[in-house]
Each structure stands twice: as C-alpha cells, then as structure tokens.
C-alpha cells in the first residue's frame, strides 16, 4: 500500500471519529464563502456599536413622508438599500459624497418603481435624510442630516 493510500485511509478513519460532521462542514464553508445561499455567517447583532442610524424621506417642507402608507415601502428596506449600494463604492462608511450619490440612485429607483410624478403625488420635492442615534445619560439623542433630494416632475 502506497503512502498516499495510507494517508487517505488515515484521514478517512480520523474523519469517521469527528462528531457532528455536517455541522462542522457547514461552519467551515459559511466562514469561507460568507453570505451566499444557503450559507451565512449570521452576523445578527454580532457587533453593537454605540451609535446607530436610520434613513427616512421628507417632502420639500421637511415633513416626513410615511413611505409604507404612500409607497408600500419601509424604513428598513430604505436603510438596507442605501447600505448595500454604498458598499459597492466604498468599504469605509460615511463619505458624504458617496452617500449623496447612493441617495440619488435610491431616489431614482423609488421614483421609477412607485411611478412618482407630479400626477401621482402632491410633493414638489423628495429628500432622503440620515439620522444618527446615540445614548447620552440614558436619553436618546438623534442628529439629522439631508443626504439627497430630487424634484418631482
């Protein structure tokens, strides 16, 4: 018997001793490939920073547009869309220029998907805002910043 076949049988014997093989294989592949179905690293709140943020939309008077009621869309999806589009340009989060670009792209998508025109909505302008949230002395503090705006034609 050659060295290679001996080695193969030794590895096979060792592998037979490994408990929960499928679990181990899934763990190894998941950390190797990242998020691609059916694998994921399940980073559910795996890092909880002291500052968090969300996005929302307003009209030209800076009044919040209830996007779920008006466009059947929600704040979570708006946030994820901006976040995923952002990482296509940069891995360092927070660049105002990229945020503006991504905000405009998102508005483009929303205008097209929900057929937003002066005939379908009463707004003259739609803006996307970023809100940064932090805790100070057990009180929530929120800082708002406009990232992009688009005229309704």
């Amino acid at each position: 018997m050659g060295i290679s076949s001996t080695l193969f049988f030794s590895i096979a014997k060792l592998w037979n001793l490994v408990p929960a093989k499928l679990t181990i294989v899934v763990v190894i592949i998941s950390f190797s490939v990242g998020k691609i179905q059916p694998f994921s690293t399940f980073p559910v709140y795996s890092h909880i920073p002291p500052v968090s943020e969300y996005y929302y939309m307003t009209d030209e008077k800076d009044l919040i547009i209830p996007i779920a009621l008006k466009f059947d869309y929600d704040g979570g999806s708006l946030h994820k869309m901006i976040e995923y589009r952002y990482v296509q340009y940069s891995k360092t989060y927070g660049d105002p220029e990229i945020l503006n670009k991504v905000g405009l792209e998102t508005l483009d998508y929303l205008f097209e998907t929900f057929a937003i025109t002066s005939e379908t909505v009463s707004y003259k302008q739609i803006k996307i805002w970023n809100a940064k949230v932090k805790m100070m002395n057990d009180q929530i503090v929120v800082v708002h910043k406009e990232i992009a705006k688009m005229q309704v034609l």
């Binding site: 709140y45 909880i48 002291p50 500052v51 968090s52 943020e53 969300y54 996005y55 929302y56 939309m57 919040i64 209830p66 996007i67 779920a68 009621l69 869309y73 929600d74 704040g75 979570g76 708006l78 946030h79 809100a131 949230v133 932090k134 805790m135 929530i140």
Partner: peptide, 15 residues
Amino acid sequence: VAIYKMYMHNYVGLL
C-alpha cells in the same frame, strides 16, 4: 440605540 433604530424603521413608514 439599535432597538430605537429598528422601531424608527417602522415609524418612518407609518408615522
């Protein structure tokens, strides 16, 4: 703050 954000995601949709 993460929980606040999560609820605000719903709030900005429904007010």
